[in-house]
Design a protein around this nucleic acid. Structure first.
Length: 573
RNA sequence: GCGCCUGUAGCCUAAUGGACAAGGCAUCUGACUUCGAAUCAGAAGAUUACAGGUUCGACCCCUGUCAGGCGCGCCA
């Protein structure tokens, strides 16, 4: 199926091309967009003015000719010229109704399978081993997961990979700390907290004590050389961390195809250096091996340290190499915070010089701050992810108990979980990831207005309407009744229903789940107006069935859309 | 100092170069004996940081200024 936007664009483009044969290029950018206000119809085309300038002609005359040249189209009931030369398009009501009917029967809700035959690797979340996940990890996890789901829905083959920070210099200090400070009881009861405590203590020790630091380096060298005892410890750290992370991912309903940490690529690092050397892409500088990227206006990229060790640029290059060799992806998408922009530009530039043709994309998001400053471990104001989720559920539970006191407690808790976790996710998904974010509990856990519970509430009300209808008319086949769009709000709702594919496609194309979230909010908003202002169960036969069918379609889209954002849709809330 | 990013009502956020800048929170008015009020209908609130420029048309593009965030050779 094609989207309305696509259909109208193709149609208008043909009329323009016939009218203006002297224009031979630039047709790719030609488009038709939704109008800003209903008085201008449903969609508008604004290209007359642009072409008029180019050809030094009168824009209204061009629009006039285009309208005359346009082939009759069933979908369009009215074509008007307004202002300096806007072409306003009003859609045909019966055609809309038929399309709503058709979309309703499509399991994909009219979404084109743009990703058919294409493979995408999505690299997101990527917490560090032996450290607890904190509030800073949620954006990569939640945004990455939404992009994952969106791409799958568009037909891409997606390989999601959690690129854990499980290798690196911190493990020398970690091992020293574990040997000297760890409490066996605490390791059983709160493993990650204990590992963190031990790490911090050892790190502080290394600042004070040269000897300690030297020993830590020794332990690191032994680990990297494959010393069995240190390997065993390291594996223990990784296992404890994975268990803890797994618990959080389960709460967030996030799964990965692969969990390959940095250590996975260890064996490939010398090979990367070899090919960089043989391709003449690096040279020695101040004792290190460096790729200079002056042409790209980027700082130099170190791939081998003075002490002979490798760093994260090396690992990332090896990771690209490995992923390309194994999966031959069309695209690799990384979701991290803004601080890594330069790093990825460097790595991508070097990878391209090495001959990598795969499209590499860094999707970055702004750091979260507190009103009084940044989160920092030193100030001890970092919010642990589990605490954050607990708080979200607790606040939601208070609301559920208030609004549904008669409900059994385990049910209240289930709803609070869906609403609380949904609210947390929606907060990060509903805004442009690239804006600065100031964290407040009030905003992060909002349960009204533009929030996940608002959408879940709309969904639950529809579910309830459907149940009641089935109770009243158990043997009626709704699909034998046509969709009727008599009321203005029904028309609005129909167009909203048909816009779902555009929202999904754009959200994936520009890596902004917020576009889908915005759309869903508008859809739910239109539905709430509909719900509150026209009767459906009490409407006469025919109208009643049409309206219940519209309800079902909205329900389907809300469920599907929220699922793409990783948000649950309980039948009651 | 250099580079990247951000600046939209009291607060939080929308707006592929198009018509009058769109919502939410908070505030104020109304609507539950009615299909679920975590809702709906309405009011009020804006010199889109500032100054220039390009354009028929600028929150959006260009230049400069101010404010904030982040990054700037061996941490990831």
């Amino acid at each position: 199926m094609t989207t309305i936007e696509q259909l109208l664009s193709d149609w208008m483009r043909a009329a323009f091309q016939q009218t203006l044969p002297e224009i031979t290029e630039g047709w790719g950018a030609f488009s038709v967009v939704a109008t800003t206000t209903p008085e201008f119809g449903d969609y508008q085309c604004n290209h007359s003015m642009g072409f008029a300038k180019q050809l030094k002609k009168n824009p209204r005359q061009i629009a006039d000719a285009v309208v005359k040249n346009a082939m009759p189209l069933e979908a369009v009931s009215k074509l008007e010229i307004a202002g300096p030369g806007f072409i306003n398009i009003t859609l045909n009501k019966d055609w809309l109704a038929r399309l709503v009917d058709e979309v309703g029967r499509d399991p994909l809700c009219g979404t084109p399978q743009l990703g058919e035959g294409k493979t995408v690797i999505l690299d997101y979340s990527s917490p560090n081993v032996a450290k607890p996940m904190h509030i800073g990890h949620i954006r990569s996890t939640v945004i990455g997961n939404a992009l994952d789901r969106l791409h799958r829905f568009l037909g891409y083959k997606v390989i999601s990979d959690n690129h854990l920070g499980d290798w690196g210099t911190q493990f020398g200090i970690m091992i020293m700390g574990y040997r000297h400070f760890s409490d066996p009881v605490a390791i059983e009861t709160e493993p990650i907290e204990e590992l963190e405590r031990v790490y911090v203590k050892s790190y502080e020790q290394s600042k004070l004590d040269e000897n300690w630091l030297a020993q830590a380096r020794q332990e690191l060298v032994k680990l990297q050389a494959g010393d069995p005892e240190n390997i065993r410890l390291w594996q223990q750290f990784v296992a404890l961390s994975l268990k803890e992370f797994g618990r959080i991912y389960k709460r967030l309903d996030v799964t990965f195809d692969l969990m390959r940490g940095e250590s996975y690529y260890n064996d490939r690092l010398p090979g990367v250096i070899q090919s960089l050397l043989s391709q003449g892409l690096v040279r020695e500088s101040e004792g290190a091996l460096v790729a200079f990227l002056e042409d790209e206006k980027l700082p130099p990229c170190i791939v081998k340290k003075t002490d002979g060790g490798f760093n994260y640029a090396t690992t990332d290059l090896a990771t690209i190499q490995s992923r390309v060799a194994e999966f031959n992806p069309d695209k690799i998408i990384y979701v991290t915070d803004e601080r890594q922009q330069n790093h990825f530009r460097q790595v991508f530039a070097v990878a391209r010089k090495m001959g990598c043709k795969t499209h590499l994309e860094h999707v970055w998001f702004g750091l979260m701050r507190l009103p009084e400053g940044t989160f920092s471990t030193r100030q001890g104001n970092v919010i642990k992810l589990e605490k954050y989720l607990d708080e979200a559920e607790a606040r939601a539970l208070a609301v559920v108990k208030e609004s549904s006191p008669e409900m059994p407690e385990d049910r209240q808790k289930n709803i609070a979980r869906a609403a609380g976790i949904g609210a947390v996710k929606y907060t990060d998904l509903s805004q442009n990831p690239q804006s600065l974010v100031t964290f407040t509990w009030e905003k992060a856990l909002a349960l009204d207005g533009n929030s996940a519970p608002y959408l879940q509430y709309a969904y639950a009300r529809i579910a309830s309407v459907q149940d009641k209808y089935r109770d009243l008319y158990p043997s009626v086949d709704l699909n034998t009744y046509p969709i009727l769009l008599g009321e203005p709000i029904e028309r609005v709702l129909a167009i909203m229903i048909l816009r779902f594919p555009e929202a999904v496609v754009r959200a994936a194309e520009v890596y902004k789940p917020s576009i889908l979230a915005d759309y869903l909010y508008e859809l739910a908003s239109a539905y709430s107006t509909f719900y509150q202002n026209v009767p459906f169960l009490k409407a006469p036969e025919g109208l009643r069935e049409s309206r219940v069918r519209l309800c079902s379609e909205v329900a389907k889209l809300l469920r599907q859309g929220l699922n793409l954002l990783g948000i649950e849709t309980p039948d009651r809330i």
